[in-house]
Simulated assay, not measured.
Amino acid sequence: MPTPLEYTIPSMAGRTVVITGANSGLGNAAALVLAGMDARVVLAVRSLEKGRAAAEALEGEVEVRELDLADLGSVRSFAEAFTDPIDILINNAGIMIPPFRRTADGFESQLGTNHLGHFALTNLLLPQIRDRVVTLSSLAHRSGTIDFDDLNWERRRYRPMPAYAQSKLANLLFTSELDRRLKESSSPLIAVAAHPGLARTNLFAAPGNGLRGAISNAFIGMVAQSGQYGVLPTLAAAVADVPGNSYVGPGGLFGARGAPSLVERSIQAKNAEAAERLWTVSEELTGVGFPNQLGKNP
């Protein structure tokens, strides 16, 4: 059963929050709230033009920095250029059910963007992080499987939705293994995950203009909650007093909507052996590993 979270967003003065994909959707909604509570918010975005346009609509201390999670070169450049302490890293950016394509490094685009890009970014920034890492997953993780024999869809016929579900399951396995490693290192940092339920963002626009797309969009419109409510699990995961490896999502309507709560993940997402194996494979694919030295809480 979901466990409701009681929390308030405190003053964020003096704290730095980095949010990936924050020029639109849930990332932008989180930036709006946190900047409004006096955080220094860094919009880590693929398009500087879109990021600057988003920043102009926000009040407070907001910066825009270029980051393309589908290019490990861009991830490294971002991490090398960002030398300041970070209190909270929110791994928000993601793509959902695009046509088949590969990242700059040859990864299937959803796994590469949603998981591997964030995996590399997190580990490169980890020595500077002082509080927590929040990674966004999805209800879709429940149908996901990690195909270690063909992670990047090189032999199978590509299917966008299973590929998306695999990437979202990877987000949860990554969170679990990251939090385990942080505990093993006696670090005060925590890794937590969140999901928005069904939120009316650009990710949930059903492709196509036919009857099927119209029906899907009508259903989403009736069931989904607005972005301002869909972002609440992300905010709760970022500021609430929760244990490491928590999973925060809507507590009602089968996880589709409702107040932020501690929620369950699938059996596959609790597989510690798979989490450790995925970590090892991710290190091999990205060339980035868990850092030897970690930051300390102030």
Rank of each mutant, 00 (worst) to 15 (best):
R46S: 03
L111E: 09
G117P: 08
R52V: 05
I88V: 15
V62E: 01
D131K: 15
S47K: 00
L136R: 10
N123P: 03
A54N: 10
A57M: 14
E80Y: 03
L26H: 07
S24V: 14
A53F: 08
P10W: 14
A35P: 06
E66T: 12
G36N: 10
R130T: 12
I86C: 06
L26I: 14
A120M: 02
A93M: 11
V33M: 00
R15F: 11
N23C: 04
S47P: 00
V41W: 02
D84C: 07
L116Y: 06
N23W: 04
G112D: 05
T103G: 04
G14I: 05
R130A: 09
V45M: 08
G14L: 05
P99D: 15
P127S: 11
R101N: 10
A22V: 10
E108G: 04
N91S: 13
L48I: 13
E56P: 09
F82R: 13
E61V: 13
D105S: 02
I90N: 08
R130D: 02
V133M: 03
L58I: 11
T103S: 12
E61T: 15
G106I: 01
T122R: 02
R65M: 14
Q128Y: 01
L43P: 06
T20P: 03
A22T: 13
P98Q: 05
A79F: 00
T122D: 09
M96W: 09
A39Y: 09
E80L: 10
V64C: 05
L26T: 08
A104P: 01
I19D: 02
A22K: 11
L58E: 09
A57K: 15
P98H: 00
P99N: 15
E61S: 12
M12I: 14
P10D: 14
I90S: 01
A44P: 10
E66H: 15
